[in-house]
């Protein structure tokens, strides 16, 4: 059986930490680079990534993150999350990975859609004005499935 090429991906970003946000952004941008249609959906705390008040301040989770290889108690020290985030941002900048605001702009310019989840918008009492200008719309889960039809769905 020949492998069928992926033509469309719908990527859901549900977590608001740096390590929760970047993979989805990289996958969406990577899809567009390959000529694959891509849409990004932000839900729950993932929505911070497109919230104007927060998207410049997305941090690495310093607690409950065994991958960091530091004792949990150290992770609790005030400023630890900011310190780890700043180190990580430096490493990523060296690798030519853009900061989240620039990355979102790139992804929007590539023609990918950027959507916010309506249920979360209501839950957090947000308005369209709270989001970045690249937001394509606030949609329901039903509209999401319609948009994702015929393609792959990736939940992060």
């Amino acid at each position: 059986m020949s492998k069928e090429a992926i033509e469309r991906v719908s990527i859901i970003i549900s977590k608001g930490s740096l390590e929760g946000v970047y993979p989805g952004l990289i996958m969406a941008n990577g899809a567009r680079m390959e000529g694959i249609e891509a849409n990004l959906f932000f839900t729950f705390f993932g929505m911070d990534a497109i919230n104007k008040s927060h998207y410049e301040n997305i941090k690495v989770a310093a607690v409950g993150n065994p991958g960091l290889h530091i004792p949990t108690l150290l992770g609790c020290i005030p400023g630890m999350s900011a310190l780890i985030t700043s180190q990580m941002n430096k490493t990523m900048a060296k690798l030519d990975i853009p900061p989240i605001p620039e990355f979102l702009e790139m992804i929007a310019d590539s023609g990918a859609g950027i959507y916010a989840c309506q249920a979360t918008v209501e839950m957090f009492k947000l308005k369209k004005e709270n989001f970045i200008s690249q937001l394509s719309g606030i949609i329901t889960v039903g509209e999401f499935y319609q948009m994702a039809a015929g393609g792959q769905i990736v939940f992060t």
């Binding site: 567009r32 680079m33 390959e34 000529g35 790139m106 310019d109 590539s110 023609g111």
Partner: peptide
Amino acid sequence: IKELYELFPKGPAK
């Protein structure tokens, strides 16, 4: 970047 995707719709860099 916007123009790049219009010029080369099937993936600009590639």
